[in-house]
Design a protein around this nucleic acid. Sequence first.
DNA 1: CTTGTTCATACGCATAAATGCATTTTGAGG
DNA 2: CCTCAAAATGCATTTATGCGTATGAACAAG
Lengths: 107, 107
Amino acid sequence: MFDENLIQIESDFLKAIAQSTRLKILYYLKDGERCACEIIPNMKEDQSNISRHLTHMRDAGILESRKEGVSVYYKINDKRVFTLLSLVDEMVKAEIKKKAKVVKVIP
Amino acid sequence: MFDENLIQIESDFLKAIAQSTRLKILYYLKDGERCACEIIPNMKEDQSNISRHLTHMRDAGILESRKEGVSVYYKINDKRVFTLLSLVDEMVKAEIKKKAKVVKVIP
DNA sequence: CTTGTTCATACGCATAAATGCATTTTGAGG
DNA sequence: CCTCAAAATGCATTTATGCGTATGAACAAG
């Protein structure tokens, strides 16, 4: 019926994006490659936590990393991730609009 | 820096898609509206489980539901979900290809 | 070789998510 | 009213996720 294996991989891929801290990192990487040392101060979470999220996304194929001395630079692996993010943004905003209308009608 | 609230909503939206059983349901709904009674026998999971996943996706704005007698019909709310799924499919397959090449090179 | 910096990881904990089984609710039809 | 079928819910259990603290590994510079 379904390719269970592919479904699992797709699920893992989406899960790697579907988390608020990771989403923030992705948005931050919109302007291009960034060192972990630049990403970390930008977030309110702990260094270890950000590091884990970065590793997670790299393992999932969302990010690529490059080492330079003690620093590690991360960037988005596939530009289509941005298309995906825009798409989600559009859909979520459309949904918010829709719900706002319903609230207007009810009272 | 970021719209924390929007990020959270987008994260929830993506999480509602990023789960293997729910992904299977979405793929099953590609051909259009389906009754829960049609979806359930198609999956190996329990009826209660599928019911909860359907409710989850409806609440997240991914699905719409329509009641007809004792049956409940579900369909995808926003066609762009399919665009998103295709995009994920492409990216995942590209990543698989990439990794296959690396494996070829190493030995 | 020592020190300081950057990033990754092990450990432990807390919370969230997914699941199956049993039960309830809801509606159709005798 | 009774019964049957479909879907939702309560409950208990297991599994997965996310997190902070502390520690470790890699590298540069003195």
